[in-house]
Amino acid sequence: MPRQFDLIAFDWDGTLYDSTAIIARCIQRAVADVGGTVPTREQASYVIGMGLMQALAHAAPDVPPELYPRLGERYRHHYIAHQNDLSLFEGVLPMLDALKARQQLLTVATGKSRRGLDEVLRSVELVGVFDGSRTADETAGKPDPLMLRELMSEFGVPPERTLMIGDTTHDLQMALNAGCASVGVSYGAHEPDAFHALAPRHVAHSVRELHDWLIANT
């Protein structure tokens, strides 16, 4: 079967990187530190994938804007304390290697900061794996389609040849807004029941299932 997609864009946290639970706890602790109403785990998980300040403002609507810098500082404090506890989901590297061997362009479209993404991409196992990336602090945050459009423009790939993979409705809505196909994963931040309205090609319930679907369908 001829290849359907030339460019595959992956979300990072909750899709490739096993960080959802720690991010949610760091959001809760940061809100508590500035005296806001602490969001539930579900509320904190929902905002994962947005740009940091957009996410924190959404998770803590009673925190006044003048405290946002402090809120961001406290989040980063808690996250840095736990960043060495994080790792790629099991099976991610073999999946990326298999896609790379097919000459598909692999990119990252993430709500992380450029500094945060670059720190994890410096690990030896990830050097040279991704062809490009966009982060929320250097372009528009999800679900705005700008980061996907920039990646497509950079590599000269049209929307119909681009696939977005993510664990949140923000990821799938961004793909829809950009005119791209999407695949959802159910093992990250959002409950997959919400995905169906956004018409993903598939919802994978494990990295192994995602790997097998991508090899068979992209």
Rank of each mutant, 00 (worst) to 15 (best):
H205P: 02
Y75T: 00
E119N: 04
S133D: 09
G184F: 00
A57P: 06
C26W: 14
A178M: 03
L198V: 14
W12C: 00
D137Y: 07
H170Q: 01
M174K: 03
N84Y: 12
L126S: 03
T169H: 01
R76I: 15
G72N: 10
L148D: 00
V203F: 02
G128I: 05
R208K: 06
S186V: 00
M152T: 00
G179F: 05
A175M: 06
V203T: 11
T110V: 01
V183M: 02
T162H: 12
R114D: 05
E73A: 12
D13K: 11
Q104Y: 09
K142Y: 09
H202W: 12
P158C: 01
L86W: 15
T139V: 13
G36N: 10
L88Q: 01
S87E: 13
A216T: 15
Y75E: 13
M152S: 06
S123W: 13
M174E: 00
S206D: 14
H78E: 07
D6Q: 08
L106H: 01
T37E: 14
S87L: 12
T107W: 11
A30M: 05
A178L: 08
F195I: 07
D131S: 07
R102M: 12
N177G: 07
T107P: 10
H190N: 02
G156K: 13
G49M: 04
Y79G: 07
I23E: 15
E73Y: 09
T139Y: 13
R74H: 04
D85A: 10
G141N: 15
P69H: 03
H82I: 11
A216W: 08
M174T: 10
Y79L: 08
P69V: 14
L117Q: 08
L67Y: 14
S153I: 03
A189R: 00
M95C: 11
F155Y: 08
V34D: 02
S113L: 05
I23S: 05
T169V: 13
S123Q: 14
A30V: 12
A175R: 00
I23C: 07
H170M: 00
L146G: 09
D167Y: 01
Y75F: 15
F5D: 07
R29V: 05
F195M: 02
H190I: 13
M164S: 00
G184C: 04
Y75A: 00
V185W: 00
R122S: 12
I23V: 11
A60W: 12
R201Q: 10
V183G: 02
L56F: 08
Y75G: 08
P145R: 06
R115N: 02
L146H: 13
R70F: 13
H211A: 10
L7K: 08
V185G: 01
V47I: 15
E191T: 07
D13E: 02
V108S: 04
R208V: 03
A59L: 06
V207N: 14
E73C: 10
V203M: 01
W213A: 03
S153K: 11
V127Q: 13
T169G: 06
R41C: 12
P2V: 02
G128K: 14
D18C: 15
I215W: 02
L172A: 00
E138K: 11
R41L: 11
H211I: 08
E90G: 10
R208M: 10
M95L: 01
